[in-house]
Simulated scan of single mutants.
Amino acid sequence: MQEEDKKKLVEEIIRRLERIYPNKLELNFQTPFELLIAVLLAAQATDAKVNQVTAKLFEKYKTPEDYLKVSSEELEKDISSINYYRNKAKYIRSACKILLEKYQGQVPKSIEELTKLPGIGRKSASMILYNAFGINEGIAVDTHTARVSRRLGLTNEEKPEKIEADLMKITQRQDWGKLSNLFILHGRYVCVAKNPKHKECVLYDLCPSREL
């Protein structure tokens, strides 16, 4: 498929998926800082589990200072039902320290700055920038985005950074964050890893993988 054809295909894919899914993450948050904390907790954990934990966490901790006022043990206890909670507690406290020292307690607004925070890679940074600030600096490629992109013939790459580069070439910049949000939801609920739900898929007629 030529690049121009892929660009038209992406526009149609977005149009169809927008009818079904909201352009948002399933993580609950009210502020950029809350989203940062939720994303740090979300590695190797479901969004539903993270939301269960943050419902209480965000009542207790409002600012970076709040996470540094308590002991490591207390924070660990508050997030102990999450996988790898000890490491995540360290990431949270370290990130909060950096926010206070370098950014006046505010979440920075670039991939370069965000990826200097512990536990935040390019995927997470792109997610935070778009969903907290509406900034399209990259496309967050998680396992769902990668799978959906390959099945739709938008990329043949395996590595997230190469998939992202392919998608950025054929997607309008204003749609980068939206594409990721929609692909994550579609991959989570319809274009699942095993036995994709072809009968429920609004992209079925566009998908070169439908016969596989």
Rank of each mutant, 00 (worst) to 15 (best):
D5Q: 03
K6V: 03
K7M: 12
L9A: 14
R16K: 04
R16H: 07
L17I: 06
P22R: 12
L27P: 04
Q30P: 10
T31H: 06
P32C: 07
F33Y: 07
F33R: 13
L35R: 12
L41W: 03
L41M: 04
A43Y: 11
T46V: 00
D47Y: 03
Q52V: 00
F58G: 07
Y67Q: 13
Y67E: 02
L68P: 11
V70A: 13
E73M: 05
E73K: 13
I79L: 07
I79F: 15
I79D: 02
S80I: 08
I82H: 15
Y85E: 14
K88H: 05
I92G: 05
E101K: 13
K109N: 05
T115K: 10
T115F: 12
K116S: 06
K116I: 01
I120H: 13
S124V: 10
M127D: 14
I128M: 06
Y130L: 02
E137K: 10
E137F: 03
I139M: 14
H144G: 07
T145R: 07
A146G: 07
A146K: 06
R147V: 00
V148Q: 04
R151P: 00
G153R: 11
E157D: 10
E157L: 09
A165R: 06
L167A: 06
L167W: 01
M168N: 03
K169W: 01
R173L: 00
D175W: 00
I184S: 14
H186Y: 08
G187E: 05
V190P: 03
C191V: 11
A193M: 02
N195H: 01
K197C: 02
V202A: 15
V202M: 04
Y204G: 15
Y204F: 11
L206P: 01
